[in-house]
Design a protein around this nucleic acid. Structure first.
Ligand SMILES: [Mn+2]
Ligand SMILES: [Mn+2]
Ligand SMILES: [Zn+2]
Ligand SMILES: [Zn+2]
Lengths: 138, 138
DNA sequence: ATATTATTGAAAATCGTTTTCAATAAGTAT
DNA sequence: ATACTTATTGAAAACGATTTTCAATAATAT
């Protein structure tokens, strides 16, 4: 039960801890699936009925700003959020059930050097995302 | 001047060739920057004043369906489209001016095998996008 | 030329998200 | 504990982007 990490992060950044924020944090933290604002709203309202959708948007905004969650881009849409990994990581998504995993250890140095040489670009960042079928779904 | 390739693709798929569609095709084909529907609208209306924004949406939809254009995902938004590359390619975007280039020859086989082994996922696809500064902007 | 029907743009509707605002509750000082 | 300050709240309204509706038009086949 380490949702307290997020709670104290919010606190340390001057944000107040409220029932609404706890409900959102409890919902998003530890989810194995990327969740849209509405999905967060529906799930979190089971814990705190009075929750408003507006507050979900506002809390997600703050969690993203503190790099505790990140946006997940998918062919079907780019509004979903997942708990952010630590350090430089990438996502692996199940095309069937939507489960999200992190992986690291990608070495794109020789690739980026190549592209840099060919194109003349100075490469600053990269986005890499893998799609497939998870253990349960394949 | 090979916008005719797109025109005939539309034709072959049973779509009629209209002034509105020509204006959209002329605008998007060959653009070095990803364009949003509104940007397409503004540019295309210089060629065909009567054009409606609705038709831009509808034409982009068809071009995407025929894989002639593709959606570009960026930190600032995911509504822009660019001429699709041929075969398996990836994008390289200038963070300053928005210029888009394609590159191929990425070899992610050993990476995906590794991840596959570690996670148990059967990997089907990947998204790779590089960001940096183009020759003019760096 | 005529007939058929896909396509059009304007307007209305819809959807997701943001802003406004008065009431409330969290944190702080007493 | 109580009072005070002010960040946070949810409802409602506003907003912007996209989609749907619809009657008029224009592309294609005959
Ligand atoms: Mn990486
Ligand atoms: Mn590739
Ligand atoms: Zn799965
Ligand atoms: Zn540039």
């Amino acid at each position: 039960m380490t949702t307290e990490i997020w709670i104290s992060q919010l606190q340390e950044n001057g944000y107040r801890i409220t029932s609404a924020r706890r409900a959102v944090v409890d919902t998003v933290y530890g989810s194995t699936h990327a969740l849209t604002p509405i999905e967060v709203y529906d799930k979190a309202r089971k814990k705190y009925r009075a929750l408003g959708l507006v507050t979900v948007y506002r809390t997600l905004e703050k969690l993203e700003e503190l790099h505790l969650i990140q946006r997940v881009h998918q062919p079907i849409g780019c509004q979903a959020f997942i708990s952010a990994g630590i350090g430089h990581q990438h996502l692996l998504l199940c095309q069937n059930c939507g489960q999200v995993e992190f992986f690291d250890g990608d070495d794109l140095d020789s690739l980026t050097k190549n592209i840099s040489r060919k194109t003349g670009y100075q490469i600053k960042e990269h986005w890499l995302q893998l799609f497939g079928l998870c253990v349960n779904c394949k």
